[in-house]
Design a protein around this nucleic acid. Structure first.
Lengths: 189, 189
DNA sequence: ACCTCTTTCTAGCGTTGCTAGGTTTTCTAG
DNA sequence: CTAGAAAACCTAGCAACGCTAGAAAGAGGT
């Protein structure tokens, strides 16, 4: 069994290496800069090795990076929420959400822009994908977890993307976050 | 001079053909399906001809399609606004905006997701790009054309993209638009 | 030491955006 | 009407992409 474990450990290690290299390069230069050849170089092997770990190729690698992202984003939003309530809660969660998107643009892109196999907006949505949404709902006091939360989420999504695409001045983010606080806080409607 | 005009007319025609083919194919199958070879086939010429019309290649073609999009989106939002005021105005403009994004997903993508040379959020922003934003500001009664309009725009942007990416049920759009009406209408804050 | 099975690499396919250089067509001038 | 100039167009090809079949190398068990 130690043999098997050694092998398994090595493949697991290399899997992590691949994902780390992909994530790093993508966040720095975009997903188009993440090529199978570069990725293979980064882990010290040749291209076909990638396909033994991720038979689906590049898109499967992106999905794996995205899944890590869901976990981290949900964790950070939850931590930011803490026990805050009202506009402070909205602003805290919004800040955490947008910070994540700014720090990891490519991870964020893989999470929400890529046509992904993961299911959304259904009953069988995996818990990793659900946790973040629930935190947003809690921040704005939307017990139904319905359209209000979707609109809040959309606003965050839009702000992050439009800032990154150069359509809004990133420096004015505080103004936007404050507006969100006033507009979305529980009972502010 | 009639000679020159004939040539100019033909190049202008072909330019329109190229843009129409690109737009059509992109809206149907995404920008990755718009290849220079297919585009050349569609207009009945070979690849290099494309570069005499658009020296910047594919990205310049996308920019040209985007510019057309700005004009049309602004026009449709303005028409939807009409003389409405309050929540009705917000809902009308939101509907028009989202409809455009749904009907022309690739044009929309070129407009707001592609790293484009066009300037945004500055004093020298071209009027085509400014008109749509001003209409949004008018719909929510934001005389400053400031953060409030940016947040409204972001919400629209986010809703459209998340719906298309399969992260939200498109069927529930009416609920979201209604929420926008309540939340963003002038004086509703 | 041998055989087996897994792992890894070499080499290559088809496609992409893009371009250099030569060929054909069109316009101008004598 | 014809020769030369200029514009338009095509053939052919480059480098890079994602991905894969089949050969070579390595590790494991007997």
């Amino acid at each position: 069994m130690p043999e098997q474990t050694t092998r398994q450990r090595r493949t697991a290690e290399r899997r992590r290496d691949i994902l780390a290299a992909a994530r790093e390069r993508a966040d720095a230069d975009g997903w188009s800069a993440v090529t199978t050849r570069h990725l293979a170089d980064a882990i010290g092997y040749t291209q076909p090795v990638l396909y033994s770990h991720f038979p689906g190729g590049k898109s499967e690698i992106m999905s794996a990076v995205a899944l890590e992202g869901f976990v981290e984003l949900a964790r950070r939003c939850r931590a930011a929420l803490g026990t805050e309530r009202g506009p402070r809660a909205v602003e805290a969660v919004a800040g955490a959400y947008l910070d994540f998107g700014r720090e990891h643009p490519a991870v964020y892109e893989a999470m929400f822009q890529e046509p992904i196999d993961a299911r959304f907006a259904r009953e069988d949505t995996p818990p990793e994908l659900r946790a973040g949404f629930d935190t947003l709902a809690e921040a704005i006091g939307d017990a139904d977890r319905g359209a209000a939360t979707e609109v809040f989420w959309s606003a965050l999504h839009g702000i992050g993307l439009l800032e990154r695409a150069g359509r809004m001045r990133p420096g004015d983010r505080a103004l936007r976050v404050a507006d969100l606080g006033v507009r979305f806080a529980a009972g502010a409607r």
